[in-house]
């Protein structure tokens, strides 16, 4: 269980998050919506270990996270994507996927020179998994292309695949559907449902309300750093405050 407990954060005089609390359960998809500047990305960055909250706590299965140390948070099983996908553009799709796996014998210099057999057997194992993951994402035909040459939607799929290589318990996704063509959005939604079925905690920021309605079990609404509503997508759509601050009146 991922739990955000009473988290506040300000930048100078600007209060970005005000006592935000929420819980995301395993095998569930949690949506975070709200107008621009409402604190969605800030919240994601706190959970991902980029920002240190002024007060409050973020815990995964009761264990507090290493605030301000993104690499440790990632190693604790919390994977995150970015609104603009981050990839090694001048490496191939396959190499990017391989780099997603942690605990690689071949990343230690001593192993490299003194235990080459251990390095190559682990490498073969990772290559097999990377291949399977590329097939699952429908990117197998792109394996030897530079990652930078993929379309925006494919890049987003690839970053999710890279995270999945190290089998994270939590996936934080920053606007996975933004700028992605409808076919790939459907593919993404299917993937999210699979990840949910695998028992993972999925949390996403999204402006695409159709995507939210299709995949989310529970939605939290932020406005000016404050949580103003929580519920199922249907409940949120009916909430008058949410309609007023974010969704707008139906035409």
């Amino acid at each position: 269980m991922l739990s955000v407990d009473d988290v506040s954060l300000s930048f100078g005089g600007f209060q970005a998050l005000r006592a935000v609390s929420l819980v995301a359960m395993p095998a569930s998809i949690t949506g975070i919506i709200g107008p621009n500047g409402s604190g969605k990305s800030t919240l994601l960055n706190v959970v991902a270990g980029v920002y240190v909250p002024d007060s409050g706590a973020v815990t995964l299965n009761g264990r507090p996270l290493a605030y301000g140390r993104p690499e440790q948070v990632a190693a604790a099983g919390i994977g995150r994507t970015f609104q603009v996908p981050r990839l090694a553009h001048r490496l191939t799709v396959f190499q990017n996927m391989m780099a997603g796996e942690r605990d690689q014998a071949g990343e230690g210099v001593f192993n490299l020179f003194l235990r080459p057999a251990a390095v190559s057997s682990r490498e073969a194992e990772i290559a097999g998994r990377a291949e399977a993951m590329l097939k699952r994402l429908g990117l197998a035909h792109k394996a030897n292309d530079y990652a930078g040459s993929l379309s925006g939607g494919q890049q987003k799929l690839l970053t999710m695949g890279m995270l999945l290589m190290s089998d994270p318990a939590v996936l934080l996704l920053d606007e996975p559907a933004a700028g992605v063509n409808p076919v790939l959005i459907e593919q993404q939604a299917a993937l999210l449902h699979e990840l949910k079925a695998e028992g993972r905690i999925v949390m996403l920021i999204e402006h695409n309300m159709e995507m939210i309605a299709n995949v989310c079990d529970r939605v939290f609404v932020l406005d000016a750093g404050e949580l103003i509503a929580a519920g199922t997508p249907a409940e949120i759509r009916a909430d008058e405050r949410v309609v007023r601050s974010y969704l707008g009146m139906p035409a």
Binding site: E71, A74, R80, F82, R86, G100, R102, L163
Partner: peptide, 9 residues
């Protein structure tokens, strides 16, 4: 940032 996101220091 990507390297850190992948759990490497």
């Amino acid at each position: 940032v990507l390297a850190a996101t992948l759990g490497r220091n």
